[in-house]
């Protein structure tokens, strides 16, 4: 009994450094960022004059370019995340199914698909930048557009990340007119669209992360009891039905994890867009994280950069907290 008490103290002692470090370097710094975002610090020397929510007001409701850029970033986040999630989940699930069918050389293919995940976003960005550099009509195509020419798809010349086009529901379309009539006129605006540049980013990000999603699904599939599949087969279910009624429902927790992990990655996206496209034409591939960096260190508006950081944190929390609650609850029920 005496030994137990000592051990409990030892246990506390063992986790104490990590608690202290996390308290300071995670939560302490979060609070500090929150505090800075309420000041008017706007050059190298800190200026902690309290200005309330002025920085937030400027970002969210201002009339200047900062506000416009912020909403473009939000648009990019929504567009990027939905496309990225969709393609990663479809591709990752598909690959996992293929590998789960016990093909020959399974481990080889598994490694091949998973390998891009081991590469840094910076490298991915640089490589895809080269691949997707479109060239011009006058000087000829480059990158994958050149490849399209070789295989007879020369008519297909996307401008990739150099294309400033934003797809959105315009006022003069039937749908746009309808939305305007029912009072949703704010939707018929480029801020509710998706930029072409986003597709290029999604392509690179999917290439990198679909293998990871595959690995997650594969692990999930391997944990599905064999008997379930056997039983379904005995009952006359075909392969499609097995996937539809056994795999997909049983893999819901995996899908949830994938959604959470990938959307937090896309919210924090910085290195990929920096190394691949920069901010893109008219901020077509700009991200909140990049905006925060430039606001802080280029415009040297430290307080405003901190405000963007806090908004970013809130958005991530909106995604993460339900997930944490969900996983904690399922842990306790187990």
């Amino acid at each position: 009994m005496k030994g137990k008490g000592w051990e409990r103290w030892a246990a506390v002692l063992m986790v104490l450094p990590s608690i202290i470090l996390i308290a300071i370097f995670v939560y302490g710094f979060i609070s500090w960022t929150g505090y800075v975002s309420l000041t008017k610090w706007a050059s190298t020397a800190p200026d902690y004059t309290f200005v309330g929510l002025a920085n937030y007001q400027r970002i969210l409701f201002g009339a200047g370019i900062e506000t416009q850029r912020f909403y473009i970033d939000i648009r990019n986040f929504v567009g990027f995340t939905s496309l990225f999630l969709f393609s990663c989940i479809v591709l990752g699930f598909g690959l996992a199914l293929l590998i789960d069918s016990r093909i020959r050389g399974e481990s080889f293919f598994r490694s091949v698909f998973l390998l891009p995940f081991a590469i840094s976003f910076i490298v991915t960005g640089v490589v895809w930048r080269w691949l997707l550099t479109p060239g011009t009509p006058e000087l000829g195509s480059t990158g994958v557009n050149k490849l399209f020419e070789y295989i007879g798809l020369g008519f297909f010349k996307p401008r990739w990340f150099t294309d400033p086009t934003v797809f959105y529901i315009a006022d003069n379309t039937a749908l746009g007119g309808f939305l305007n009539q029912i009072g949703l006129s704010f939707v018929t605006n480029p801020n509710w669209g998706i930029s072409v540049g986003t597709f290029s980013l999604v392509l690179a990000a999917t290439w990198q992360l679909s293998g990871y999603v595959m690995a997650l699904y594969l692990a999930g599939m391997r944990s599905i009891p064999h008997e379930l599949r056997e039983a379904a087969r005995v009952d006359g279910a075909n392969e499609y039905q097995i996937v539809r009624y056994i795999y997909i429902p049983l893999l819901t927790p995996i899908t949830l994890s994938v959604v959470i992990i990938l959307s937090s990655i896309s919210l924090k996206l910085y290195d990929l867009s920096v190394s691949m496209t920069g901010v893109g034409p008219g901020f077509a591939t700009d991200t909140l994280a990049f905006n925060m960096f430039e606001t802080t260190f280029k415009a040297t508006r430290f307080a405003q950069g901190a405000a963007i950081a806090v908004i970013l944190l809130v958005l991530v929390s909106v995604l993460i907290i339900p997930y944490l609650r969900y996983s904690l609850r399922s842990e306790t029920t187990q």
Partner: peptide, 15 residues
């Protein structure tokens, strides 16, 4: 700060 705003405005306008 003004310079950054000026730059960003032109970047958006260019597109």
């Amino acid at each position: 700060a003004w310079k950054t705003a000026f730059t960003d405005i032109v970047i958006k306008f260019t597109a």
